[in-house]
Design a protein around this nucleic acid. Sequence first.
DNA 1: GATGAATGAGTATTCATTCAT
DNA 2: AATGAATGAATACTCATTCAT
Lengths: 216, 216, 216, 216
Amino acid sequence: MSVSSYSANRSGAREARSPRQNAAERARAATRARLIAAGKALFAEQGLHRITTHDIAAHAGVAAGTYYNHFRDKAALFSVIADEAIAELIERLDGAVGPEESLRAGVRPIAEALLSFAEDRRDLIRILFSREADAAAIEADVLDRLAARIAEGRSRSIARGEMPSGIDPTVLSQALVGMWARVVAWWAEDPSRAPRDRVIDTLVQIQLSGTHPAAS
Amino acid sequence: MSVSSYSANRSGAREARSPRQNAAERARAATRARLIAAGKALFAEQGLHRITTHDIAAHAGVAAGTYYNHFRDKAALFSVIADEAIAELIERLDGAVGPEESLRAGVRPIAEALLSFAEDRRDLIRILFSREADAAAIEADVLDRLAARIAEGRSRSIARGEMPSGIDPTVLSQALVGMWARVVAWWAEDPSRAPRDRVIDTLVQIQLSGTHPAAS
Amino acid sequence: MSVSSYSANRSGAREARSPRQNAAERARAATRARLIAAGKALFAEQGLHRITTHDIAAHAGVAAGTYYNHFRDKAALFSVIADEAIAELIERLDGAVGPEESLRAGVRPIAEALLSFAEDRRDLIRILFSREADAAAIEADVLDRLAARIAEGRSRSIARGEMPSGIDPTVLSQALVGMWARVVAWWAEDPSRAPRDRVIDTLVQIQLSGTHPAAS
Amino acid sequence: MSVSSYSANRSGAREARSPRQNAAERARAATRARLIAAGKALFAEQGLHRITTHDIAAHAGVAAGTYYNHFRDKAALFSVIADEAIAELIERLDGAVGPEESLRAGVRPIAEALLSFAEDRRDLIRILFSREADAAAIEADVLDRLAARIAEGRSRSIARGEMPSGIDPTVLSQALVGMWARVVAWWAEDPSRAPRDRVIDTLVQIQLSGTHPAAS
DNA sequence: GATGAATGAGTATTCATTCAT
DNA sequence: AATGAATGAATACTCATTCAT
């Protein structure tokens, strides 16, 4: 388990990467990965502040102190997880809609991407939208980033005259983000609450009509 | 274990209240009111679990133990505040829309009631929508109650054939609630972010188009 | 309830005991009696340190502060109760055995007096023999007083040559007291554990043989 | 909630214990031992509920929180101490009397074992017989176990016709246990109160005569 | 790098007691 | 004398974090 301990400092680093160094590095990365996995599982179940660093270490099968060899403090792991989650979500959304694609065409793909993400990553959904005081900064971040992306798209729409003039794009983006976040969290909690396609259809209908002059 | 003294008015007797009793009761009510005010201010600023009962007592200018002469535990004050806030919010919404009024007519009044509440009661807004783990039950309650109210109205709309068939009323109610909660919280945080009427107009436009066949 | 409050200080004491004073005095005594009764009931049920002064006042139907108009502190009421209990017990024992009566004749009456006391005053038994840290001083007192009484009797017996010389009267008195206290407490807890007369017979037999040369 | 670290030796592996693990384990055991020693000293002096976990930690020379690395709560240390004490007492009593030995022969050895225990372990005596409300369960246990042992022996005596018929064995066992417990506690408090042998002689005489027809 | 024992500040809650009315 | 609101010291228990090995 701790082979690396005895060697790491002794090797006279000749080559940039001795095999020994590689082994040590791989072991370290593996420990880190297990801590992250433990964090995802536990934060999703119980939320940030019901979980202790000891819980995470124990779930990862390492000693309590090991946690601090990998993360500065309790919040750091949460941030890492949240950042990964956000990145994955953004990536999926980007995959779903080409950046310059017509927004009209894009609504359904976005909703589908969101719902797929909720299906595949219920743990991440719970972490991202978990309504935690301590997580507020992170969550605000998630939602604000989404909102910013949307607002940006909307501005282009407006510039092209595609949106009713009464609508403020920043308000709209907050509204859409709040809507999506709530619906996705609500549905991820118990997907049997509504058929997946019906959720998508509903979101699409609201979106379509609410945001596009063609709908009126 | 012992009979509690948490209710403001213990004596069942209507009459025969001595001046001394009245004075004591008034003093008690005043202390309670100060604790509630302190709770509102502090919970709004920092959230439920960053605040200690000592903080609240200190902010109210009473001794630490006095808190427990008025509230069973830390959560109790939060509940009282949240319940009051919900009641006030509901009351305002009820005042804004007659129960059987056309939904179409009702969208704007609802948005206006919401925004007024956000203006007048920024502290309560922060508490109600503060995304706290411990407050989750309360917030879920708020939002679910709103969602239930909306879903109910929607059902009538559907029955009257006023809504597109693709829309699921439970999904829609979650969506609207998420949208409103987020927009209101976002705006209450800093009302200079958008002019009040523009927020209302935006919400109305989304609502109108999204929920009414006449808009399509 | 508080008629006396308004008059006590105003009466220009002409006679040694005005009717008003008598009334006030009686009211005060009644309050005190109710506190004592409450203390007996509650201490017997739960022991000294599970019971709060608020519990006692509430059970007596008076305000919390009233307790301190009658007793210096929490221990004072306990002492009063214990003293009364001891006095009653001593009185019963004295009633059972004439001071100079032959000890031989007295064993059965003592056992009977003890068991009767246990039957009539289960609450006091529980208080006197309740094995409480804080009550230790009091209980030690009870038992030591009993032991002293016994030791005294024994010394006379020894002087009269009625007791085996190997027996130390102080040790014997501790032994008897421990025996009695435990048996009485054990039996008072659930009198169905053994028929009353069988308990007495057993105690008598042990006593008789253990303390009297005639038995050897 | 999390897997505890209260047992001294967590690792099931017999072999493959690194020097580091051994050192840590030894350190842990040493701290635990100091906490237990502190508990014995303080509980014997002041009783369970006059002593705080901070007192124990301070007396053991460790930080307050360290207590909880070794014992789940305040009661846990007391239980550990009491269990050890009971076990040691039982062991001594078993060593003193062969199980089937004549009871007659056994009285003196029992008394001697008891007194030796009281001499060697004055702290444990005080803890075992300390008359504490919270310790009641433990003490009841001690005394009941002793009583049960005695009752068992008595039943054999009765079966062999060695005991007067007027005596109820359950009452007798309570009586003997009360007697012993009180005498031992009284004597351990200040052994100069009576010479050790005189205590033993007195106990033996009471026992002999009280329980055995051959003595009459 | 990993370990895990130790740390100690932090916190909710209790309750004997006081005192102004 | 009675009231009862206020007091504040006391205390069990938690947990993020450190550090010697």
